[in-house]
């Protein structure tokens, strides 16, 4: 055995494991063709967001008054808006804003919901009852109205938009997680953990939380699309991300409706971007749900 052989053997192993991984993914994509489409849309968005500064042909905030309201063409692929800003560059940078808000709000919201939901199920009794009533109160407002109220308290900015979207997510996730955690609470290992003298926090975080990962992940993926959509709506109402930050909802505000007849591209492309992004995340989320939740499998 020479060193070269060893390398080649490990290489073969590597190749073999790689192949099975590719095979596995191909298998999954065959079973979930829509999910695969969603996955690639999500992937494309992430690449767009990360490499925005390399991909965007122009500075997204540059006002070029010599190039106002130019129709899509060779110089400006998707045209320019009323301030002479390149729409394509703004869309590419807008992916950054949308993804940042989407991931941050849904991750924080779902995680808080996870912990609170498991807590509620674990402690039960009066705590659970009161906690459920509080959740009811939060759930009795439409997401956008809740977010609107919160943004008007803190004032519109990217960071506050994230807070405004996160808060209504918490009870939505907590409720689903709680109903799953209630079943887990009855399994003897929780009692065993208590008998071993583990603290509440340890049982909740280390023993129960990992077992409600499926509903947590399902909620998390479904939140991303909703968060992107809510951010766009808030920005469209002028209560979200503020100029000059490139954001899709903001691009539809103001000029888009004013110039709808003569320069429709200002209104069309940002909407397509929002729809595609949310579409991708929803398709992907649906497949995640199908894979993780055996009750919903179609076979």
């Amino acid at each position: 055995m020479t060193a070269a052989d060893v390398t080649s053997v490990s290489e073969i192993d590597e190749l073999r494991s790689q192949k099975t991984f590719i095979e596995k993914s191909a298998d999954m994509f065959r079973k979930q063709p829509l999910g695969a489409v969603g996955f690639f849309v999500v992937l494309a968005m992430i690449i767009m967001a990360i490499f925005a500064n390399y991909l965007a042909p122009y500075d997204p905030t540059l006002n070029d008054f010599a190039a106002m309201l130019i129709a899509p063409g060779a110089d400006y692929w998707l045209g320019t808006d009323q301030f002479g800003r390149d729409i394509m560059s703004r869309l590419i940078y807008g992916a950054r804003t949308a993804l940042f808000v989407g991931f941050a709000a849904s991750f924080v919201g779902a995680t808080c919901g996870l912990v609170l939901g498991v807590m509620s199920a674990y402690f039960g009794g009066t705590f659970d009852l009161i906690f459920q009533r509080i959740m009811d109160v939060f759930m009795s407002f439409p997401l956008i109205i809740m977010a609107l109220a919160i943004v008007s308290i803190f004032g519109p900015s990217t960071q506050n938009v994230i807070i405004a979207i996160t808060i209504p997510f918490i009870p939505r996730c907590a409720r689903v997680v709680r109903s799953n955690a209630l079943a887990i609470r009855e399994i003897p290992y929780v009692d065993a953990a208590r008998a071993l003298g583990f603290g509440h926090a340890r049982i909740i975080l280390r023993h129960m939380a990992p077992n409600v990962m499926a509903p947590f992940l399902i909620m998390l993926t479904s939140f991303v699309g909703q968060a992107i959509l809510t951010e766009a709506s808030l920005s469209y109402l002028g209560l979200g991300v503020q100029e000059p930050t490139p954001a899709w909802g903001l691009m539809l505000q103001g000029g888009a409706e004013e110039y709808i007849e003569s320069e429709p591209w200002i209104a069309i492309f940002p909407g397509v971007a929002i729809s595609l992004a949310v579409f991708g995340f929803n398709l992907f989320g649906d497949s995640v749900r199908d894979v993780l939740d055996p009750r919903l499998r179609t076979q």
Partner: peptide, 28 residues
């Protein structure tokens, strides 16, 4: 089935305010 599902997922994805703008554009 795939066509209907795509249509309905698109309904959740398309922001209603943008759909409104597009309806106005289509009417015009």
């Amino acid at each position: 089935d795939y066509a209907v599902r795509t249509f309905s997922i698109a309904g959740i994805a398309i922001p209603s305010f943008w759909l409104g703008i597009m309806i106005i554009l289509g009417l015009l």
